[in-house]
Simulated scan of single mutants.
Amino acid sequence: MDAASAEATRAVPAIPCDAEGPVFREPWEAQAFAMALALHERGVFTWSEWAAALGAEIKRAQAAGDPDTGETYYRHWLATLERLVAAKEVASSDTLHRYRDAWDHAADRTPHGTPIVLREEDFRR
């Protein structure tokens, strides 16, 4: 486990881990984790700020009926990432929605098992 991942797992103890470090069920989960690490390293937020925001996101989801079985953990991680990025004005909510929509369009045309690549036309829909 690298130093950044180790720091994150100490600061946010709910991260799913095994003896080697964080565990991800799907590639997008690892990508969301890596984005949070990169933004933390750039000083966008502290780990205590992240942990508080993630805790609030999980509570919101539980209040809305999330059964909290662990399968949705990285969905909460991603929602927290989006909220903090917007709150810190790293990117606007509109920009985040634009990229999410473009990603959905790219995923729709990409065969299963093939890496998703964003193209300019994905942003024009």
Rank of each mutant, 00 (worst) to 15 (best):
H112C: 00
A19D: 15
A53C: 14
A51T: 08
R83K: 09
E71S: 14
S92C: 09
P67S: 04
R119Q: 10
V85N: 03
R125P: 07
A38V: 02
D101E: 14
T110Y: 13
R42M: 01
A79Q: 11
A56E: 13
D101T: 14
G21Y: 12
H97A: 15
A11Y: 06
A30L: 08
W50A: 13
G21P: 13
D2R: 04
E26P: 06
L39S: 01
E71D: 12
W103D: 12
S5D: 05
V12T: 11
P16Y: 14
R109Q: 13
V44L: 11
D104A: 15
A36N: 00
P115M: 09
P27F: 07
P111F: 12
G21S: 15
E89G: 03
T95M: 12
I116H: 02
T46H: 08
R75G: 06
R25A: 12
A53M: 14
E82M: 10
A63I: 01
T9Y: 00
G113S: 05
I58W: 06
E26L: 00
T72G: 08
S93H: 09
L54G: 11
R98V: 05
R75T: 04
L54V: 10
E41Y: 09
T9G: 05
R119F: 05
D68L: 04
A79G: 05
P27M: 07
V85C: 00
E7W: 13
S48N: 08
S93K: 14
A102E: 13
A6F: 10
